[in-house]
Write a protein that binds this DNA or RNA. Structure first.
Lengths: 217, 217
DNA sequence: TGTACATCAGTGAACGCGCGTTCACTGATGTAC
DNA sequence: TGTACATCAGTGAACGCGCGTTCACTGATGTAC
């Protein structure tokens, strides 16, 4: 009898979780889905089968922890939103004044997107799913990234750097950061200059500065 | 013998094309794919079966005119790029000076995207396909929309309105327009103000104006 | 004008595939007595 | 301390589905003679 190659069937030897510890697997599944997304760079590669296989667990086990595939993807999105928020908060910590904080946030946003393109794509470039549509706005605000942006803009308005209402300005800055990231992700062959991210963010802030150029129409 | 309901099998009675006119079907298939995309608002709904069914033709007939599904989608993208370019050219015709032309182009771009979200998504928000990646840049420039944008920016630079090199400025303006459109498409539940498109485009142009605000750092 | 035949637009049926999901089941864990 | 048993984490096998693609075929069209 020839010994089968180790790992051909079960790549990772798993120990069954202790009695109240069933939720441990939930975290592993979530991490596997996130990793698969990063490695394959393709949302279509994240099937329930692929995730289960990567964890080293049977397919139905996934359904012990997530109602369906959409719930799994939603959980991944929550994680990504949280990480994006953390990246921006970290960048904001180094800022000395509210205006440069705004720029740092923007650059951190785009950098995160470019470093995690498939994660960014899944949260910001997908069609709004029918079921999640109702929760979309709550999901975004729940991640607190949007609240943090609004607060940062408000500080600039209060300090007199920026003109206009907070909400429209925040949405504009978000749109520019998103456009910069999404364009570079979707059309990487375009001849972007080396400082494209920094100069785009800078230009976006320049576009909302108070007392603009004399020639302003 | 009961007569079968008319239309249950073949929704449209088709006449077989004349001898050298086989390519007529190609146009119908392309139009059906485009219409399906618009009606379902879902790229996944555009299967070879669905397209053939909508034309009223058998599935293998599609392969007489397109090498595979990707070729069909590529052809749809070409159409969409062409329509987008036409929309912008039309908007540019009404402009009186190069600066307002730039704004009109931007607004027309976003309007097109919002009116044809699924068409816009397929050309600008999809993962760059492996095979098409090499041709991506050529595809964009071949549509001439990018050339037209570069020329419009150049006119602004030559007239002294805009500061900087043409290419980076054009890419920036594109990124802002794309971000505005893509954010509104992907996150429609966000509280966008009514004039968001116009004010975003205006702000983007303000961000690249020559001799910016005195407070400019 | 009539007919045999080459051309080619289009078809019916099937292929294998991977998918999300479900069902009845297993067997280790921990508790009650 | 020992044992019967309830619990529950996890499984093997199968379900039906729609997909892209291919194969051998049909039959109308138009041409050569």
């Amino acid at each position: 009898v020839t010994t089968p190659l180790r790992g051909t069937k079960a790549p990772l030897r798993r120990h069954r979780a202790r009695r109240g510890q069933g939720d441990l697997l939930r975290g592993e599944i979530l991490a596997a889905a996130t990793a698969l997304l990063a490695e394959t760079g393709d949302e279509a590669a994240v099937s329930v089968r692929a995730v289960a296989g990567r964890v080293g667990v049977s397919v139905p086990s996934v359904y012990l922890h997530f109602a369906d595939k959409q719930a799994l993807l939603d959980a991944v999105c929550d994680e990504v939103f949280g990480a994006l928020d953390r990246a921006m908060e970290e960048a904001a910590n180094d800022a000395t004044d509210p205006l440069s904080e705004l720029e740092r946030r923007g650059v951190a946003y785009v950098d995160f997107a470019l470093q995690n393109p498939e994660h960014y794509r899944i949260v910001m470039m997908r069609r709004p799913s029918l079921t999640a549509a109702a929760h979309e706005f709550e999901q975004i605000t729940a991640s607190r990234a949007f609240d943090h942006l609004l607060a940062a803009v408000k500080r600039c308005v209060d300090a007199g750097y920026v003109e206009g209402e907070v909400l429209p300005v925040a949405l504009y800055l978000w749109a520019v950061a998103h456009g910069t990231a999404a364009l570079m992700i979707a059309k990487p062959a375009l001849p972007f200059p080396a400082d494209f991210v920094a100069s785009s963010i800078r230009a976006s802030v320049a576009g909302v500065l108070a007392s603009p150029a004399p020639g302003d129409r």
